[in-house]
Write a protein that binds this DNA or RNA. Sequence first.
DNA 1: TAGCGAGATGTTACAACATATCATTTATGT
DNA 2: ACATAAATGATATGTTGTAACATCTCGCTA
Lengths: 153, 153
Amino acid sequence: MNNIDTIIEHAEQNCKSHGSRLTTKRKQVLSLLAQTDKALSAYDLIDLFVKENGEKIPAMSVYRILDFLEAEHLVHKLKLANKYIACSHITCKHEHGVPQFLICSVCNAVKEITVNKSTINELNQSVEQAGFKLVSPQLEINCICNECLATAS
Amino acid sequence: MNNIDTIIEHAEQNCKSHGSRLTTKRKQVLSLLAQTDKALSAYDLIDLFVKENGEKIPAMSVYRILDFLEAEHLVHKLKLANKYIACSHITCKHEHGVPQFLICSVCNAVKEITVNKSTINELNQSVEQAGFKLVSPQLEINCICNECLATAS
DNA sequence: TAGCGAGATGTTACAACATATCATTTATGT
DNA sequence: ACATAAATGATATGTTGTAACATCTCGCTA
């Protein structure tokens, strides 16, 4: 059983365990996201979907499916890039904290990292001092990955 | 001389000092942004522009003007919200570092803060460990401002 | 097992954000 | 005053996302 199948399997269990359904379409979309480390836009997914499954899918459906997958914590929406990525912890058992993302602004590669708790706390202090409350410490940081950096130079 | 005029004055000097021109239109747009602590979209600005100046402005012009103002470091683009805000340091003399933004997801109020240098350094370490390079440590953080928090409860 | 109801998906239209391209106007130096 | 470059206008279109309503499908119950 390969990695993708494992992920889908876990995702399906995950959904079942609280009464939601990972339908065929949802599996297909999740599968597309799980097969890459790049962030994909909804319209990227529409194109990919046709290529992989030889079948069209409406924009509306993709957005609905992405909303569902996000609510299930199976994908993350990167607001900075208006793109989506599979959660890299689907097959983990432990509760995972709030993710931080590094987004390569050249190739859209995304890395989900865990920032030091203390760093986040410090950040939170700055926020509170300014009279705001953190909604979610999800950070999305514009970067260049080492590969693109090497290619460019 | 009120605060807005001071800002515009400074901005104009700023531009002059390296040979670019703060035209009337550009002043008008900057002025609209400087009069609020809310983040405004390009289309918000179009509407406001009509209201304030009784004269239409094409979307294309607004985007061009925003690009110009951004290049002059007079406004910042918040990618998280697809909105724009006047730089809060226009009238400062010192070189200001890369800004961090707290965006109220309810009312769009934005606060430009300066995060501890050491916090940013820690963040940068996490990034480098992951094999990425920070392009710009501009952070945009989803928050709720204390006012909206109070209203909601 | 037929059919009911909820949830999932399809269809169409459109709103909001953004840019490409080419035309016209305005400012500045000679 | 004129040539030139910069700024702005006009039109069309691309991209991202949602509203509203129709249809289909799955799982339950009679």
